[in-house]
Simulated assay, not measured.
Amino acid sequence: MSRSVPHPYAARLESIPVLRREVEVEGGRTAYWTYGPEDAATTIVAVHGFRGEHHGLEPVVAHLEGIRVLSPDLPGFGETPPLPGRRHTLEAYAAWLTDFVAEVAPGAIVLGHSFGSIVAAAAVAGGLPAPRLILVNPIGAPALEGPRGVLTRLAVFYYWAGARLPRRLGDALLRSRIIVRVMSVSMAKTRDRDLRRFIHDQHDRYFSRFADRDVLHEAFVTSVSHDVSQFAPAITTPTLLVAAERDDITPIEAERRLRGLFPRAELVEIAGVGHLIHYETPREAAEAISRFLRTSADDTR
């Protein structure tokens, strides 16, 4: 981390043991990080969002005391190579997550943020045996119908152009620091200048760590072609939705409707934040998660 951009959650992270590991899943290598005590009573597998990687969820992890969190990089992002010989469809990502959990943490609670919420919901609806499901900034309705549907359509064109231009030009477009900054500015809601600088620095560092333009385009098409509402009615697992009142991708009204589609779901709304709960209000998210885990555990006794 650059000294010029302090990490507001660094002290908490430094107090947590972290190990980097790898595992063979779906014929390929998956890199993942284990946070917290190995003997913790509760284990969460946390799935990051589109264009991100495991670092993005660290601020939330930093506030989850006494919980073991396993955070993989999605195939094609961060340090995990693309799935060998497969297109990166939702079915492929859900199968990867199901096998990953079976390999490293059978019976773990599953958490998904943003695009990760779609992957997690699809996997659990498809049979991943998770005792609890936690969705942060869930994509609760089709992205093209969100409050910034026009911008989503521009994003469709952007990723299409990146995939169709000559490879060198397309790659440069997709990794453009200017466009990454525009994305970052549009999502951040906080007025705290230091926190905004941290958010932009995180996006500058990690938003272009995708394997190549092909996997990025496939993952983007997957992200805008599906949403959690498709899978909610089939998920009987107790579920927590942590939603933002100012989310530009899924409006809070849609999140309230989404809650009603689940047989067993709780909705926590966080005020003053948008699609970056994990950066702007990680403490509030972690508190909601901890309450949910305590309450749902009491309900099973």
Rank of each mutant, 00 (worst) to 15 (best):
M1V: 10
R3Q: 13
S4H: 07
P6N: 08
Y9V: 02
L13T: 01
S15K: 08
P17G: 05
L19C: 05
V23K: 12
E24F: 00
E24I: 09
E26S: 15
G28H: 12
T34Q: 13
G36L: 00
P37S: 14
T42K: 15
I44C: 11
V45M: 09
V47K: 03
H48L: 02
G49N: 03
G52N: 11
H55G: 00
H55S: 04
G56M: 11
V61H: 06
G66W: 08
G66V: 11
G66H: 06
I67F: 04
V69S: 02
P81L: 15
P82W: 12
W96E: 08
W96P: 06
L97Q: 06
E103N: 05
G107C: 02
I109N: 09
H113T: 06
G116N: 03
V119K: 07
A123I: 14
A125C: 10
G126T: 04
P131K: 11
L135Q: 09
N137K: 07
I139S: 11
G140M: 02
P142M: 08
P142Q: 02
L144C: 03
L144Y: 01
G149L: 11
G149Q: 12
V150E: 15
T152I: 15
L154H: 10
Y158N: 09
Y158V: 01
Y159M: 08
R164L: 14
L165Q: 09
R167P: 11
L169E: 09
L169W: 15
R175E: 14
R175Q: 14
R177F: 05
R181W: 02
V182K: 03
V185Y: 02
T190V: 06
R191C: 04
D192I: 07
R196W: 04
R197G: 08
F198N: 08
I199F: 05
H200I: 08
Q202S: 05
D204W: 11
S208P: 00
S208Q: 11
R209E: 12
A211P: 03
R213M: 08
E218G: 14
S223W: 06
S225A: 13
D227T: 00
D227V: 04
S229D: 09
P233A: 01
A234Y: 06
T239L: 04
V242C: 10
E255D: 14
E255L: 04
R257V: 00
P263K: 08
R264G: 05
V268K: 14
E269I: 12
L276N: 06
Y279C: 01
P282Q: 03
R283M: 06
A285V: 09
A286N: 01
E287H: 02
I289F: 10
